[in-house]
Write a protein that binds this DNA or RNA. Structure first.
Lengths: 254, 254
DNA sequence: CAGTGGTCTAGACCACAAG
DNA sequence: TTGTGGTCTAGACCACTGA
């Protein structure tokens, strides 16, 4: 026989599927439109449902699809740019920073957190819970760890619990001098409580932004914020308002 | 009957598995150690292999495991901090920025890229291919789009092809005044060629860092860099050298 | 070669949302 | 109640690595 072997390294079916569906999204579907259900799609492409789902998962990871149990799969809007620039040198909670305080408790932080704060291993800190909303949708959930030493003037007795207490802690923090901050971004999966706040399933991919706030030679606070990776694009600088269209050009309803 | 229903909302098996294995990693395994193979693990936990794999995928996403076909599953080292701070206001390729130029071609960029460059839709640009290595491992692959107008003095005739040409383009770029830059981070999946450079499978999760370089009121260059999401933690500021241990404390060999 | 992870199938049942 | 996506099973074969 001839040795004309065109595809010696066949690409996986789900990878090819992802490409085909991705192109179809660009040409045949409008944002918000509902796709056929997974069983139909699998039958249409002649693959098992699990294989079809592998392709959809990739597209969801890239922010092109949105899947909701009991509802269906829809075409996702472009990712929203969320400004996380560190240039402004401000404490959390300053000047309407688009976060809303939800709660405030006292607890001993995880060891990974305690390592950054100059506290003892079993020392309690304030834990402020905040939520960030953008365009009406929750995009991030944050845990802000504040050692008692950073808000020494705060009296636990006269501050009520809940959001008011959170605001009191932030207000006290803002009275200090902010020497600098420090930011890191990495991929993670949503903890159960974060997932609930973000209207996602536990384990959903998130971008974890860790920020250290320095004051008087110490780490005065540490923020761990989890952003929805499917809907968010983190921006550093002034590009937050620029429209980015990643996949193809125009779209039309079918 | 009594209404004592302890677990009305049972968590998924793979989620529970992930927790159990994650704790075992902290207590019973050392970095680099090889786990039992998937079939053994699945049997040991009494679940199907697919379910076990779902748990391992999550742990790999969080950077705690590394899986290699034909080899096995190993405990991953802590993520390496990679500095991507934008404060230094420098062109790409300046002052040993830990990137190495691989190649340089000319091609019409994707529409999503062309939109940022002030070029025509079908206009060719230089496309510089670079690779970033850290601790001996490739951590990022970059495509740098440079419109011909940004390196006007460059003559295509007297520049050789390959890495030398890439360096020539960068050198020419650095002669211009850099007005500012602009950075965004989002989740993506690795294209086939990027995956190959990063020693990953196509579709692997990556952190996509898009940088715009401004000069003379225009976008003089646009960089799209894909960082391995499993092994990298992007840092903005001076925290790149700080050890971050996210999961548990000490570890011991078993 | 044997052993590993990667892909794929054809089912089943469950949790959830909406009519 | 119906239909959706989410979970799970018990197999099979393939691609790759290293001895």
């Amino acid at each position: 026989m001839g040795t004309t072997q065109l595809e010696s390294v066949p690409e996986p079916k789900y990878w090819h599927l992802k490409t085909v569906i991705g192109e179809a999204l660009d040409s045949d579907f409008a944002v918000g439109e509902i796709l056929p259900n997974e069983r139909d799609l699998a039958a249409r492409f002649g693959v098992a449902r699990a294989t079809l789902r592998q392709a959809l998962e990739q597209l969801e990871l890239e922010g092109r699809l949105q899947r909701r149990r009991g509802v269906g799969t829809t075409v996702a809007p472009p990712r929203v740019g969320v400004d996380v620039s560190t240039t402004e040198h401000a404490w959390p909670g300053s000047a309407q920073d688009s976060w809303q305080s939800v709660d405030c408790t006292q607890a001993v932080p995880p060891v990974a957190v305690a390592r950054f704060l100059d506290t003892g291993a079993d020392e309690e800190t304030y834990v402020v819970r905040r939520l960030r909303v953008s365009h009406g949708q929750p995009v991030a959930a944050e845990l802000l760890y504040v050692p008692a030493a950073s808000v020494a003037e705060l009296s636990a007795i006269d501050t009520p619990s809940g959001p008011a207490r959170a605001r009191a802690v932030l207000r006290e923090l803002q009275r200090r001098e902010l020497d600098g901050q420090d930011r890191a971004v990495e991929l993670g999966s949503a903890r159960a409580d974060d997932a609930k706040e973000l209207d996602r399933l536990p384990g959903a991919p998130v971008l974890m932004v860790t920020t250290r706030y320095f004051s008087a030679g110490r780490t005065a606070a540490l923020s761990v914020a989890t952003y929805r990776a499917d809907t968010c694009r983190l921006t550093f600088g002034d590009s937050g308002d620029v429209e980015i269209r990643h996949h193809g050009e125009e779209r039309r309803a079918s």
